[in-house]
Nucleic acid binder design. Structure first.
Lengths: 224, 224
DNA sequence: CGATAGCTTGAGAGTACTCAAAGTGGGTGG
DNA sequence: CCACCCACTTTGAGTACTCTCAAGCTATCG
């Protein structure tokens, strides 16, 4: 969900649990392209992504789609409102999720540390969404894609020698629906960044950041 | 903050407190055009708007602005992340705010009912922001403005005979920065809705909804 | 009553969209 | 194992919506 937040994570590390106590519920494992829940479903548990990537989506009646967030390891998905899900959640890759009972979010009687962690996750989510607003409302296509890649590089980039590499498990259409663009525009913008020599592509699903400074500059609006 | 949420409030009523216990802190009163806090400020208390309207803003280095939310009576403003504010908050009108200590959000030891209310407010905020995403990312100028007016009509509209009236304490520029448009486009879109006979304007700051069904249709994308 | 900030309208430009076609690659079946 | 197929991606051409720049208008405040 926090593929929007610019600063490195100060909160929950991806490989740690949310509480010192052992989790009460077993891990949920899902194959790629599976639904975890749908919009309108009753919320019984919320999940921390332990490995893999999920997608949170909202739909308009006429089929327009907005991807609210991509959930990477460490992220919490499934925050309820009035007891129901208001997005749908699908897996992009094979995924492992740690479920938590909703009651642990709602009160801290049984496990105060877990409760506090879940609350912090909710607050982090609010902060992340505020960044995403700026991106959707006020950035150009190039700035949007550059911001997206920059955040991913910070969160899940892998240093390979001189450069940073990132895997993109999602399609161009997913990226478009996350950034408020069309697939064609996303594709064209990738090509621009490639011609810029800011990035290189290794297949469609692997991006190599060749010039991180330039990427950051483009993300903030230095057109050049 | 929830000038984004489509369904009527099921949560906190504007004129009720968040807990059965009397609030410990006195009301904060502010004149129009005053800052409540700035981005980066340390969060010590969060506030419930009791009367008036506030604006939550985020800024980009080059001056681009995104309004994250308008805070109306009942709304909670000032949710922290890592202990700090990540928006700035200014008053649009004379405002009364009920402050709550941050500790009441963070744990329920001293007042569980208040704690639960604040948590619900955070979850409602997440839900509201998800609606706002759809608006910013996937709607046209007309759909955006129609959605905005429809939500305001539900939340703060006043029935005057046949029609519903809404006050807009914010400027056209504020509306533009909320919807991800320019002031010119907002103004032109108001004019379109006026020619449509969907709305009428009584000065710049009062809108009369003449055809609510048409407004709702336009909000969802029925171009006509 | 005049000054000024905010709003509206107009004309033209630019970015992203739509529609269309060609290219690429992963997966399946022969 | 290779070839075909289909879904996804890329590129192209033209369009449209919103933006920019600019000028007039309105209303609010001193």
């Amino acid at each position: 969900m926090y593929v929007t937040i610019s600063s490195p994570h100060e909160g929950v590390a991806s490989d740690k649990g949310l509480s010192d106590r052992p989790p009460t519920l077993p891990l949920t494992r899902l194959a790629p392209e599976r639904h975890l829940y749908y919009e309108g479903d009753k919320v019984e548990r919320i999940y921390q992504v332990k490995s893999g990537v999920v997608r949170l989506t909202r739909l308009l009646e006429d089929g327009r789609r907005q991807i609210i967030a991509f959930g990477y390891p460490g992220d919490i998905v499934g925050f309820p409102f009035n007891g129901h899900h208001h997005t749908e959640c699908e897996t992009l890759t094979r995924v492992e999720l740690q479920p938590y009972l909703l009651t642990h979010l709602e009160n801290g009687r049984s496990d105060p540390a877990l409760h506090a962690s879940l609350l912090q996750a909710a607050l982090r989510e609010i902060a992340a969404m505020q960044d995403h607003f700026m991106m959707l409302g006020r950035k150009t296509a190039q700035e949007k894609l550059a911001s997206f890649l920059a955040v991913l590089a910070d969160r899940v980039g892998i240093k390979t020698g001189e450069f940073t590499q990132i895997a993109l498990p999602m399609s161009r259409a997913d990226i478009a629906d996350f950034l408020g663009l069309t697939t064609e525009t996303v594709s064209r913008t990738f090509s621009q960044l490639r011609k810029n020599k800011t990035i290189a592509l290794n297949g469609v699903h692997v991006v190599i950041i060749r010039n991180r400074a330039a990427l950051n500059a483009l993300a903030e609006g230095d057109h050049g």
